[in-house]
Design a binder for these strands. Sequence first.
RNA 1: GGAGGGGUGUCCGAGUGGCUUAAGGAGCCGGUCUUGAAAACCGGUGACUCUGCAAGGAGCCGUGGGUUCAAAUCCCACCCCCUCCGCCA
Length: 426
Amino acid sequence: MLDLKFVRENPQKVKEAIALKGDAAAVDELIELDAQRREILQQTEELKHRRNKASKEIALLKKEGKVQEAVVKMRAVSQEIKVKDAKLREVEEQIQKLLLCLPNIPDDAVPRGKTEDDNEVVRTWGQPKEFSFPPKAHWDLGEELGILDFQRASKITGARFTLYRGLGAQLERALVNLMLDLHTREHGYTEIFPPFMVHRESMVGTGQLPKFAEDAFKVEGTEYYLIPTAEVPVTNLYRGEILEEEQLPLKHVAYSACFRAEAGAHGRDTRGLIRQHQFNKVELVKFVHPQESDAELEKLTNDAEKVLQLLGLPYRVMLMCTGDLGFAAAKKYDLEVWLPSYNAYREISSCSNFRDFQARRAGIRYRPANGGKAQFLHTLNGSGVAIGRTVAAILENYQQEDGSVRIPEVLLPYFPGLKEPVIRAQ
RNA sequence: GGAGGGGUGUCCGAGUGGCUUAAGGAGCCGGUCUUGAAAACCGGUGACUCUGCAAGGAGCCGUGGGUUCAAAUCCCACCCCCUCCGCCA
């Protein structure tokens, strides 16, 4: 959420910035409503001031028994307050609605552009492997090896769900543990195991609602949503709180299942693990001092990259252009892993700096060490990384000519008692 | 699911319609005393939000409505916590 005062004082700048992401018409409406609000507010406050004064007088007059006249007079004032308050409430609701649907302002350093073609390559790590045989797609490998069962998952639940079996299930679990271990032991994150369902307010806090309701699964008969990412519960950990400056930065890592309706994605990535209604992810979330968020984004991105480096998966780091930034981010790096079946790099992690956008929505502040006024802090998060897509990348990049798949060495401690570090047809 | 109890300032806690400008205590800050510290005593300190150029004003006692000239206090709905019973991994 943007600061209403900032919008009021910089309408042109905000409009330009919003236009980079989409529709800026709401900004004018917002400014008009804001003016209305302050006018009504002044009127009601004046009336309430009168009422408060009269109230005290009536309390005194009562002793003399001459209350009637004053009471009748104030009855009218009170009625007027009620009417004006109702109008004020209405205007404020509209303001809130508009404000909650306004996207964040992109950082100056973010390249301007409309589509993913305008994203910039920041750096590349590793080389896409040359195969001496035609490499298979992970969905074929997974089925042939008997470790991924798309058919039966759809029998049980439906399309875009996967069932892992045997070493496949173990591989998924090993990756979760590898990442949690790495980030807690090497990178200083504190592990969180959050609820996988949250209420509406949490979804609003991180920006999934109110605008993107169709992307989320809501649990029927309740007001709960299945989380689309651990970002939601973990960022909302400190909703409505004032932290001490010395506590910053707070760094959390959380494993969670993620649930996405994938509305509007019909026909895209229909095969394999790339686009699922349910997938696993290890998420990194940071709460930082505003001055540190730029540097912390770089560090967070590096932390996520480390996972791919340990697994020996070739990837590149992309800086998202304004049109590909998403709703809440001010700046975003995507990590894209090499997938032979696509003959291309595919997103496996998104690392974003939200600045105070989420903090303002969720009311997360810090108290400066010098004891000044509480300030909104900055939030960041990034996948560290998406598990399902990592499995896909391992299967495809580590496949061998006979259809077996080597297990990356760094994962072997998570496969105790394994005879050979290879997944063969079972 | 059933029954009961409770949510007040940083914390504990009083407060059943106007004298609450939220008592009292703890804490915190300053001071006296002391070689120093503790204790004691004295003084100070009350979040946060909005609005206004300012002086100031308005709001805020779990949340949202309502009653009233006036609500922490009365009414309604909801949320959360605790205890007991039932059910349950």
